[in-house]
Design a protein around this nucleic acid. Structure first.
Lengths: 209, 209
DNA sequence: GTCTATATCCAGATAGAC
DNA sequence: GTCTATCTGGATATAGAC
């Protein structure tokens, strides 16, 4: 009995999701160049030729992963900004969430690692690289807005808001890359330590808790 | 007139240093796999074949760069630890130096980027990767010692010293990677902001300056 | 020490049968 | 949709002449 159109569609979707999962895993570890299309196929459990029925090239898979990762990051940070809360709360909440996700979510760590690699490695065509860099700027810009809000409210330390945002994201980045390389995560620092870079009275609060 | 042995030796040394410089530049941008031996040769201004009279393989160049980078990092942090000073001073001094070097020294940024890539990308044979990870642990261990000293002296916040060291290096790492990817560096945050994660009264000091 | 030419290998991508 | 077999290009590494 022949398969219906709908069943084929379903097979495609399931397969494609498996490819994405495996591609993220491997790309995040080895980067674009050192990851072989054959390894991804083997990881998924399909032949190497079949992969080309889902993606037109290795690069296409990679770009798909990157776009997805950046898009999700941007959505998340926009949601934080639009919270009805003080900057102080937004900063603490975002850091708490980020630390928690770094600690618990393997896929999130892989995503961070992938973004870091894509941003810091120039193995893509220039136009693609540029487009990545543009999207990458959004979280920095939005965090700067939040820090500005905090400075007006008096909770955030003085200084250039863009620089504070840089410090925020580069620290998160360094941390998530670090934990992405560990086999097992035993402990992760207190997110309030990072908050101490930005919030005036955080150490006071820490000690009084 | 034939060249003497000494002159040949000298040519070799000059050439080798040029190769190292160019290899660091390119590896730090594109990683091991995406960097072609031919590009390095072209960057140095020599034929591709000649490179093999200086190094036995592409990987050999890479490993040489990594070892050198890790060695220098370890020496630097050991020198900080052995300073005759309070932990408070050691932490502030090291951060000040690091920020200054990130801002001013192109080669240093490349080195950081290379270490980050080598640590976070699994494109090397496992035994080499392991040896890198071992050497990489030393700065973390030593910073933890300094934080312990600081906790005894009362200047450093409470908490697991290993976690503080992790936060210290991952933040530095994230920052240097970020600046390594920029064409031009206009401004870099105040190093005292980072110090606020570790030192109890840093915000007080900042405001009073 | 330096170059050009070449051997060798391997991975990305395609073709065609089932 | 899936597989095996194959084409093709490109990069590492070597050989041999100057």
């Amino acid at each position: 009995m022949a398969r219906t159109e709908g069943q084929n569609e379903q097979i495609r979707e399931v397969r494609k999701e498996k490819i994405r999962l495996e591609a993220l895993r491997q790309f995040s570890m080895k980067g674009l160049c050192a990851t072989r299309i054959q390894d991804i196929a083997a990881g998924v459990g399909m032949s190497q030729g079949l992969l080309y029925h889902y993606y037109s090239s290795k690069e296409a898979i990679y770009i798909d992963m990157i776009d997805d990762a950046l898009e999700k990051t941007n959505q998340a940070v926009i949601a934080i900004r639009d919270m009805n809360a003080s900057a102080n709360e937004k900063i603490l909440f975002s850091l708490q969430k980020l630390f928690q996700t770094i600690e618990q979510n393997d896929r999130f760590r892989q995503t961070c690692r992938l973004i870091a690699q894509a941003t810091n490695s120039a193995e893509l065509p220039e136009d693609v690289q540029d487009s990545i860099l543009q999207k990458r700027k959004i979280p920095y810009r939005i965090m700067a807005e939040i820090f500005l809000q905090g400075q007006k409210e008096g909770s955030v330390v003085s200084g250039d808001a863009d620089e504070l945002a840089t410090l925020y994201w580069t620290s998160i980045n360094g941390l998530s890359i670090y934990y992405a390389t560990l086999k097992e995560i035993d402990s992760i620092p207190d997110y309030k330590l990072l908050a101490a870079m930005f919030l005036k009275d955080i150490h006071f609060k820490r000690d009084s808790l």
